[in-house]
Design a protein around this nucleic acid. Structure first.
Lengths: 157, 157
DNA sequence: CGCAATTGAGTTGTGCGCAATTGAATAGCG
DNA sequence: CGCTATTCAATTGCGCACAACTCAATTGCG
């Protein structure tokens, strides 16, 4: 792993600041636009993510949803409970394995897909970037994610 | 605003999905590395951001901190109270303007800067990307942030 | 088979982000 | 000058992320 030899800690402190600021700002900016786009559907952004995977697969165990979205039960359990209260989803213990809970779309949940149809187009338009740039952005993000996930950072400085 | 005319809603749904996944994953990956690096200092990542701006300026009113980090009082008030409890920071009402609260580093807070010196270097190394790629990433993130912030998305789909 | 280890959901507690509101201090206008 | 509008911090309420834990069901090993 490169140690960035030619730079003083002071400079790095600033560069570091810029990178985390940029990522943070972008993340919050996306969140803000999604919030507006989804308000009408009564969904938050993480709830929208869950609905996306359910719209693809119809029904899934909680475990699979968590794997797809990298969310744990501490996040999913209350979130799914809210989706159930909203009438979009049903939760039932699996019969083959009583530990597992299967999440199924209700008719209302499936119907919501139609109303969500314009969300991606409007979001991509709001980014103001051509599709090629978005692809480049995604590629960089994925590379940095893989590296960060596999970098085992030692706790002690 | 362009409507990305040549693509079906289905394709856009996937692209949209991929982009939010990637951004989400990157954000969480950064968070995880920062968490490990900062554990020792007793700081969370947002607390670290506040310390960064204080290390630069020594003392700042809450308002200015919020402007720099784009955080509102609902986030900053309890966060600063925790930093004060940890002994890193003092909070005092300004005398010129009694509405304003000035946040000042304590000796302990200033001293923490030394121990944080290796954090940026270690973080940048963990990204596994050359500095030019990180600059490109930052540039794309900033562009998309500006666009998203200035795009006034209409609430109704 | 029987018991320990693992797995899957759920719960609790802490901290952050955002919206909406409160309350006090200041600024600005008539 | 006096009243209204604005500004600043703090608070409340909700939802999410993460860690640590509980508990039941299942797996697997001796």
């Amino acid at each position: 792993m490169t140690t960035l030899p030619g730079m003083a800690d002071e400079e790095l402190l600033r560069l570091d600041q810029q990178i985390c600021f940029s990522l943070n700002a972008a993340s919050r900016a996306f969140g803000g636009v999604y919030r507006v786009l989804l308000r009408d559907l009564g969904l938050t952004y993480p709830q929208y993510l869950v609905m996306l995977v359910l719209w693809e697969d119809g029904e899934l165990p909680v475990k699979r949803i968590g794997e797809r979205l990298r969310l744990d039960s501490g996040t999913l359990s209350p979130l799914l409970k809210r989706l159930e209260t909203a009438g979009l989803v049903r939760r039932e213990r699996s019969q083959e394995d009583e530990r597992s809970v299967t999440v199924t779309l209700t008719a209302e949940g499936s119907a919501l897909r139609g109303r969500a149809g314009q969300v991606p187009r409007r979001l991509l338009a709001a980014t103001g970037l051509p599709v090629e740039d978005l692809a480049a952005l995604r590629e960089l993000l994925d590379r940095v994610t893989v590296a960060l996930d596999s970098a085992d950072v030692e706790p002690a400085p």
